[in-house]
Simulated scan of single mutants.
Amino acid sequence: MADLHLEPLSATTVVAANSLTLKPGQEQYAVPVSHAEAEQTIDPEAAWPRVVLDGDEVVGFIKGSFDEHETRPEFRCCIWQINVKGSAQGRGVGRFAVHGLADEARSRGFHRLTVIWERGDAGPEQFFLHVGFRPEGETRFGEVIGVMDL
C-alpha cells in the first residue's frame, strides 16, 4: 500500500467503487439511517466523492460533504460514506482517506469533521475512534455522532 492516492470519482472508477467487497457482516453498517434520511436535503454541490487507489487498483471510497450553511451541525463538514475493500482493511487505506478528507476540510476553513456510525460487533466504531474521532452525541436513531477537531 505504498502508492496510495485520492482521485475524484469518475466514469472510469465508479464501477470499481460501487463494487468494493467489504468484510462479512460490514454491509449492514455501510450507510447509517440518519444519512439515508438526510440525503434528500444535502446540497449535491457540497459533495466530495473520492476513490482511494493503490497504484491503479481502487481499494477504497470516501464521500465527504462541505456545506457551511447546513442547519444540522453533524452534516456541515462530514464523512458521508467510507468503504475499504475487505482485503485492504488494516493497511492504512481508511486512515489515508480520512486524513485526505480532513486536509480538504482544513483548506476550506472548517475546524471540525464529523461522522455518524452505528454500534455493533462488525461496525466501524473502533476504526473511527482509532483515527481520532470522539463520540459527541447521538442521532434520533441512536447512532453515534463522532467529532474530530481539525
Rank of each mutant, 00 (worst) to 15 (best):
S34G: 11
S34N: 11
A36C: 14
E37W: 11
A38F: 06
A38T: 02
A38V: 03
A38W: 05
A38P: 00
T41P: 03
T41S: 11
T41C: 09
I42K: 06
I42G: 01
D43A: 12
D43S: 14
P44V: 15
A47C: 15
W48N: 14
P49Y: 08
R50W: 08
V51P: 05
V52H: 01
L53S: 06
D54A: 08
D54E: 09
G55P: 10
E57G: 11
E57M: 14
E57H: 15
E57N: 15
V58P: 10
G60W: 10
I62N: 11
K63Y: 15
G64N: 03
S65Q: 13
S65N: 11
S65M: 11
F66L: 10
D67A: 04
E68H: 05
E68G: 03
H69C: 10
H69I: 11
H69N: 13
E70H: 02
E70Q: 03
R72D: 09
R72E: 09
P73F: 04
E74N: 01
F75P: 07
F75R: 00
C78M: 06
C78S: 02
W80S: 14
I82G: 09
N83H: 14
N83R: 15
V84K: 12
V84S: 12
K85T: 13
G86T: 03
G86V: 05
G86M: 06
A88I: 04
A88T: 01
Q89R: 00
Q89S: 02
G90R: 00
G90P: 03
G90Q: 00
R91M: 05
R91A: 07
V93D: 04
V93I: 04
G94F: 04
F96Y: 06
F96K: 02
F96Q: 04
V98R: 01
H99Q: 04
H99R: 07
L101W: 03
L101Q: 02
L101C: 01
E104A: 03
E104W: 04
A105V: 06
A105E: 01
S107I: 04
F110Y: 00
F110C: 04
F110A: 02
F110K: 01
H111C: 10
H111E: 12
H111G: 08
R112G: 05
R112T: 06
L113R: 05
T114H: 07
T114Y: 02
T114D: 06
V115R: 03
V115G: 07
V115C: 07
I116R: 05
I116F: 02
W117Q: 13
W117A: 14
E118A: 14
R119K: 13
G120Y: 08
D121F: 13
A122L: 11
G123D: 12
